[in-house]
């Protein structure tokens, strides 16, 4: 158990290191690029204009940008370990501050979407499995394929068109109370609901074919109690695993959904800083997204043995 924990922690750190390294070197892959971008902001205040060679050289000297990428990376990582992610080129605010302001919005959106997809996906999956090959099953399953195939940004536009613009039920964009949360959360949760529904269905069908279900019938248990005590827990084991992966997809989706609904979260910050070529902020966003993703998967690994006694024991 303890060894497992240490191993998980090791992988956790490794992923953080690899992803930040990759991102760092990708963003610095164009030689001299960083100095140019910095010069644009420092001297011209905009990414649209081109700085002169002298201005670029000044920036290079001041921030010591001519040294090797590796030494730049080491100083960035060293500062990051102390919580210092540098300053945004654009606003000159500390990156960690920019991110922490927006963190709650993203966390709210992601968690509400995950919860939504569980509350929709699991019951419908079970229903479809219980009524296998019935009309209910066909409707659930085809809606799920639709949900997986629908581009989330298009779904966002359609929902906005119908519920905000035509019916006036919800606000179109922005951040605020519950009413602002509904459309983004529904958009973001749809695909995950569909994935979880399909998985629950197939896992339930698989479990109902197992020998121990037949043995439970042989004991004289009713269909209902077989279902509740014997089938459900086994069927949910793969669903727990997929939640971690789905959370990753959701975080990817927040980038688009936050942009559409003007939701002030990290995803939108990432897009804005990509267009503004605000390298420190891009790096910070990726770091935080990785962290959130890894933490959730860490938590899932921790609750796993509670559901599946075969994992994590001796």
């Amino acid at each position: 158990m303890f060894f497992n924990f240490v191993k998980r922690l090791g992988i956790f750190c490794l992923v953080l290191i690899i992803s930040t390294t990759l991102v760092f070197f990708m963003l610095h892959s164009l030689p001299g690029e960083k100095a140019v971008v910095m010069a644009k902001y420092i001297f011209l205040g905009s990414v649209e204009l081109n700085p002169s060679n002298e201005e670029i050289q000044l920036v290079k000297d001041k921030f010591d940008l001519d040294r090797s990428l590796i030494s730049q990376y080491i100083s960035w990582a060293g500062a990051a370990l102390h919580g210092d992610l540098g300053r945004s080129y654009k606003s000159n605010d500390p990156v960690s501050q920019e991110i922490l302001i927006r963190l709650p919005a993203t966390i709210t959106l992601a968690f509400v979407s995950v919860l939504m997809s569980l509350f929709i996906g699991i019951p419908l999956g079970i229903l479809a499995a219980v009524k296998q090959n019935s009309i209910t099953d066909y409707i659930c399953s085809s809606t799920a394929v639709l949900g997986i195939s629908m581009p989330n940004f298009w779904l966002a536009l359609l929902l906005m068109l119908v519920f905000s613009l035509k019916l006036n039920l919800t606000p179109t964009i922005g951040y605020g109370g519950l009413s602002h949360l509904i459309l983004p959360a529904v958009t973001l949760g749809t695909a995950s609901s569909a994935v979880i529904m399909r998985l629950t269905r197939s896992s339930m069908l698989e479990v109902m074919r197992q020998d121990y279900i037949r043995a439970a019938r042989g004991k004289g248990l009713s269909r209902k109690s077989i279902f509740i005590t014997h089938a459900l827990r086994n069927a949910l084991i793969p669903v727990i695993t997929i939640i971690g992966l789905e959370f990753g997809h959701l975080l990817g989706g927040t980038v688009i959904i936050e942009t559409i609904f003007a939701w002030p979260g990290i995803g939108r910050l990432l897009i804005d800083s990509i267009s503004a070529r605000d390298i420190p902020v891009i790096q910070g966003c990726v770091l935080f997204i990785t962290l959130m993703y890894m933490l959730l998967n860490f938590a899932i690994d921790a609750v796993y043995p509670l559901i599946d006694p075969r994992i994590g024991g001796n």
Partner: peptide, 10 residues
Amino acid sequence: AFPSIILALV
């Protein structure tokens, strides 16, 4: 393990 769209974005 990483959301692929974010990698592509970077």
